[in-house]
Design a protein around this nucleic acid. Structure first.
Lengths: 259, 259
DNA sequence: TTAATTGTTCGCGAGAAGCAAACGGTCTCA
DNA sequence: TGAGACCGTTTGCTTCTCGCGAACAATTAA
């Protein structure tokens, strides 16, 4: 079984570490901040915040610029490392580029972590539209084609755990909002091999996703192609694109077994 | 003045936070590890390591997979954010892609932080060679063309501070190894507008870099083109490429003033 | 000059955090 | 089928850390 079964509520925590995590979170939300501002925001003394920031700066997790502290580029380094640890990352990236060029649309790659979906790559073809998603972005799994493709590969109990943890927040009126609806949808995905998003996230945006079946390392991922409803309709939407996406997923799977 | 003047030796630290930072560092070096392994490596009790890992997992900085803890993809998210905070990032990225296509070589973008250079983007043209550098990678500034281009824009006292902090470790026999040599080199860069790397880092690899003059936010960066000595020689190396790189840097500067 | 901001330093007391040891798994090998 | 040797996890206890408040510089504004 992958990751922590449910959220581990038990066990001791280290308060000081929690404070530093909160500081990083706050620095991100505020695009950098000073000691006093953080102290007020987190309801802690200035002295506390100060010693934490100094420690974090020592370790190059934050940078001090004049009198403002900001998130350091060290995160870029570690983030890039984290991506590289995903064994199918390189193969998938190449395949996505090909897919984007072939279709002219946007191709994306998502993996599951902590019960949510993380975008790991985005390739844009000639006619690619702008999408709100960016690499690193975390989305709930039940409300995107990529997410549903991933969920379709997980054992039912894991899906239950994820719902318990994150719920089924409703993005738009088309989002699945009950467990039954979701499990039905996942069954359909398993049967057809692809997941669809028909304007469920954004008006006018359609999306076709296929899971990457690769239980190795308990890592579950999916790839997709997105585009405007005007181009995503008829045979192209229901036959051509699903076939292309599934084909790409297949190639990745084959390459992955050789790792 | 940007960042901390010299390393801030003074002030209090938070030991617990330091331990967590060490854990993350260790997880990265070891590509994930268990509690016992970390406890031994960091010379701490298992209980301590465990409570730290639990806290870090709560905050999604690490993931527990079976009995191994690993660096989480949350770093991808924060890293991507950190990049986006660099105001010239988007403009430079576009310009790099153009540069790579036009020359067929490798084009790169580096900024300074904590006295070292961080690669933020890499674009590859048709004939691009493989280079060891990757996005997020941190290099000493004195031993690459990009680094020297950056240093040439910093006030002398800042350069002194950086040398005090990091020294001038010698990569190859061609690396500058004394302060005088370095300051002479920087003077040349300022005069010519470009910095060269003539097989100083790697046998057979040459590189031309130009600083991006843009004091805004105290952010200093540079862009470069790298390629094999076989193609980087004669007029192309000493005139054509320097001109192209400087031109690109100029375009970025102009676009940057409009931010 | 004064007043109101900063960030920084410091002494102190409370409680957090680190340790050791015990506990409950799982796996291997006899 | 056990014994033993790992593993991660839990728990009490003691100590020393760390968070607080207040004082201290250093800017900035009025």
């Amino acid at each position: 079984m992958s990751e922590t079964p449910g959220e581990a509520e038990s066990g001791r925590r280290v308060q000081a570490v929690q404070i530093s995590c909160d500081i990083i979170q706050a620095l991100r939300e505020k695009d950098g901040a000073g000691v006093s501002e953080l102290a007020e925001h987190l309801d802690r003394s200035k002295a506390t915040i100060h010693s934490h920031l100094t420690t974090l700066a020592d370790n190059e997790f934050v940078v001090k610029r004049d009198d403002s502290y900001e998130i350091s580029l060290r995160f870029v380094d570690i983030g890039e490392y984290a991506k590289s640890q995903v064994d199918i990352y390189e193969v998938t990236k190449k395949e996505l580029e090909r897919l984007a060029e072939e279709t002219g649309e946007v191709a994306q790659f998502m993996v599951e972590e902590h019960g949510r979906g993380v975008y790991l790559h985005k390739a844009s073809g000639k006619n690619a539209i702008q999408t709100a998603s960016y690499v690193g972005n975390r989305k709930y799994l039940h409300c995107t084609a990529l997410g549903k493709a991933i969920l379709s590969q997980l054992p039912e109990e894991r899906v239950e755990q994820i719902i318990d943890r994150h719920g089924l927040p409703q993005r738009t009126e088309n989002t699945v909002s009950t467990r039954e609806e979701l499990f039905d949808a996942l069954e359909t995905v398993r049967r057809e091999g692809v997941a669809y998003d028909d304007e469920e996230v954004l008006q006018g945006l359609r999306c076709v996703a296929a899971p990457i079946k690769h239980a190795n390392g308990d890592l579950h991922g999916a790839i997709s192609i997105s585009g405007p409803t005007s181009r995503f309709k008829g045979d192209r939407f229901h036959e051509e694109l699903p076939e292309v996406v599934q084909g790409a997923a297949n190639i990745i799977e084959v390459n992955a077994t050789q790792l």
